[in-house]
Design a protein around this nucleic acid. Sequence first.
DNA 1: GTCTATAGCAGGATAGAC
DNA 2: GTCTATCCTGCTATAGAC
Lengths: 224, 224
Amino acid sequence: MRGDTMAPDQREYPTQARLLRQAEMLFAEKGYHAVSVREITNAAKCNLAAVNYHFGNKKNLYLNVFRSLWMPRAHRIHECFRNNLAACRDSSPPTVIRAVAEAFLQGPLSDEERLWHSQLMIREMTKPTEAFDLVATEIIQPFFEEIGHALHPSAPEDMDNEQVTLIVLSIISMIIYFTFARTPVSRLTGCTYDHAFTERLVNHIVRFCLSGLNRDASGRKDIS
Amino acid sequence: MRGDTMAPDQREYPTQARLLRQAEMLFAEKGYHAVSVREITNAAKCNLAAVNYHFGNKKNLYLNVFRSLWMPRAHRIHECFRNNLAACRDSSPPTVIRAVAEAFLQGPLSDEERLWHSQLMIREMTKPTEAFDLVATEIIQPFFEEIGHALHPSAPEDMDNEQVTLIVLSIISMIIYFTFARTPVSRLTGCTYDHAFTERLVNHIVRFCLSGLNRDASGRKDIS
DNA sequence: GTCTATAGCAGGATAGAC
DNA sequence: GTCTATCCTGCTATAGAC
């Protein structure tokens, strides 16, 4: 994909950027408390004191990972969803769901970014920190409302807000799960997360969210 | 902080049991590295050295939480699923899915146990440790196969193993999500996790897994 | 801005009294 | 089995040279 995913360890990037990048990777993979500042500065090939110089302390580095890297990525996914939707004439449920699933699973993020992104999100959901408020108010709530509205026109009359919310939560939960829980998913399916598999995942998600166990071909999409 | 003076924390239980219990709670809530041995022994109202005496070291205490508490609970859920299923005459998809959802969300566990159970599971899925192998081979795989078999008779002919696995993963992912991600779920729905809400959750899950967005009128589909 | 050196402290683990 | 006292490693954070 883009050049900046290729050589993050290189000195050509300023120390701040290298720190943020390596910190995100390590925090996502191991969690805040399992990562030491030493580990981050070693990975970023800079000095131990750099974290305190640039970010004040470890906690603030973590928050800046969300502010500077996580949020922009979330906005890119959101934008990708809107583009996917705009690219189709209709806004039928299959179209909306496919737009969401593709934005997350095949969207603008690189494979690694996708994993970090979802892992950080899951960690914040399991044990929220100060970053959660940011994520919830600026990303989750607007995004969820948008999906809800996109789905609403084709919803039955008697469906209330709670039901719409639960539906959106269910769709997102599946997508997030298939993104972050690679270990159990790979183990149970026997598949690695290559392009072909994520495509099958998207198709599965669209079909399942549309009609559940009563499968039909309505969610299928021809693959060129 | 943690000495909530509830009956289970009392001295009437042997030190080992108190340690396991408090360790599970703290590990589930905060994660392995965020919890210190001191914190656990304080919560368990015993001495610092007790962890090393009874379990050798911190890591082994963590593993024993899985062996002694997590696994038995998982078996109780599994058993509850089987009982739910046996209580019904049929084994139609709605019955099977309701049996799974109720086993997890309203099953034999207390509300707190359910939360700890799912949080520990999510943590193992996000970053597997030695405990993951135990969980995967002894719980997840057999349980998933059983659900798959229960659903299989009513599945279309052309459905292969991967599709069945993805369906079971989707069902479980939703259930797990609604169990562990209480913060975002409560925030978006505005509901607290009382009995009435979990009942609505179960109903939602059953309906959604059965027919997805096509809830009532099965004739309702694309509008394009 | 980047580095070295170090303060200051909390962590896991152990030895040995009782 | 339980406790106190202690070791020692590794952590975050800071001071100050360059």
